[in-house]
Design a protein around this nucleic acid. Structure first.
Lengths: 206, 206
DNA sequence: CTGAAAATTTGCAGAGTATGCACAAATTGT
DNA sequence: ACAATTTGTGCATACTCTGCAAATTTTCAG
């Protein structure tokens, strides 16, 4: 059950985030100090750090929920013909389906886009989770009877697949932002896979 | 001509870098302070920041030289059948052919690998240059008669190609490090392209 | 060789980020 | 209402980083 405490915490958290984002948009990330954010959101500096740990923390997206057991199982044991498509789809679902405050989401996105430092952090944060997905892909490979006995660099292949999908993901996020976050997950998956197909098909390898 | 001043600068730079790396390996990145590095390399803290701008700066690889005009022209107007292969090759050349101090290179690499924060920074630094290469790929597309008239999302395709290649690059760097930096550029290109082929060929798109 | 010019290094003051700790205030469950 | 628990704050302190001016070192022309 959601207690008063929980609601207050959420409110404080959001209030600080919003103040920080607005100040960032107004003065530029570099020129915003933690004190300014604290003044605007009426908490002590100590509380700010209790909540976000660092100045940057307030701007960076909170950790994305990793896929749950059901989704992972569906991916690993799924009969889909494309690792790319299936993996992309699973990841997209977690990123797209946030029913959060769209206005705040856009403001934050705009600020991040126009602040190279934050943009890089955001990118880094995203690829941090790559390893988890490499694990899933390996599981899927094994489920389909492939093993490291038969293909010594199976892990590399998995890594590569994840790399490619995360590349596609970056491209897609860009596109999604341009569309003002209007596209559905199906749109995104379709767009990304169409493009990947075109690229891989066009290539003639020596 | 190389003056005494230049040599001293280089020596100081290297001395600070080495001290920093050794201390990092010994105490862990988090526990190394700028003062410790300065004590060990006998410069003032102010000088440290004159050279590297930030504590992190001393650990992050110095900006990789972008390909020169000749290499770019060769890529843009080249007759190679694979954008992937050609682009990968061009980038690999710039990264591989550093004739720097191998011992220091390995120490730094080890430290970065075992320090998540530095690893992410390094990744971020690498992808920062993506935009430049997107430009080259676009030039190559246009040189071959493709235009945004005919393919509205040509730029997206270019971005995607670069994403994929940088993904391959990450994979390759990993592999290269494992081989203790012994492989030649040809080895790397071959290995990466073989893997990409396997992956793209294996896929059956719906 | 010498002295002025230019580049480099340094010390210092100060702003900003971040952490630990103890205490005050608010909330919860009884 | 009250004891326990959680949350917020003040304070001291460490560390990163910048601007500025003075001190030092290197360069180079005469």
């Amino acid at each position: 059950m959601e207690t008063l405490r929980d609601r207050k915490r959420a409110a404080t958290r959001h209030s600080i985030r919003r103040a920080a984002t607005l100040l960032g948009l107004q003065h530029g990330y570099e020129n915003v100090t933690v004190d300014m954010i604290c003044d605007a959101s009426m908490v002590s500096a100590r509380t700010f750090f209790n909540y976000f740990g660092s100045k940057e923390g307030v701007y960076i997206s909170s950790p994305k929920p990793t896929p749950n057991q059901t989704q992972v199982k569906a991916f690993v044991e799924g009969t889909g013909s494309s690792v790319f498509g299936d993996l992309f789809s699973m990841i997209a679902e977690k990123i797209v389906d946030n029913d959060a405050d769209l206005e705040y989401f856009r403001e934050r996105h705009q600020l991040i886009q126009q602040t190279p430092e934050l943009l890089n952090r955001e990118k880094a944060r995203i690829s941090e989770t790559e390893d988890v997905f490499v694990g899933y892909v390996m599981d899927r490979f094994r489920f389909r009877g492939r093993s490291e006995k038969e293909t010594p660099d199976l892990m590399d292949e998995a890594r590569m697949v994840v790399s490619l999908v995360f590349g596609a993901m970056r491209y897609t996020m860009q596109k999604w932002a341009t569309s003002n976050f209007a596209d559905t997950r199906e749109d995104l998956v379709l767009g990304a896979s169409r493009l990947i197909q075109r690229i891989t098909k066009n290539e003639h390898w020596p």
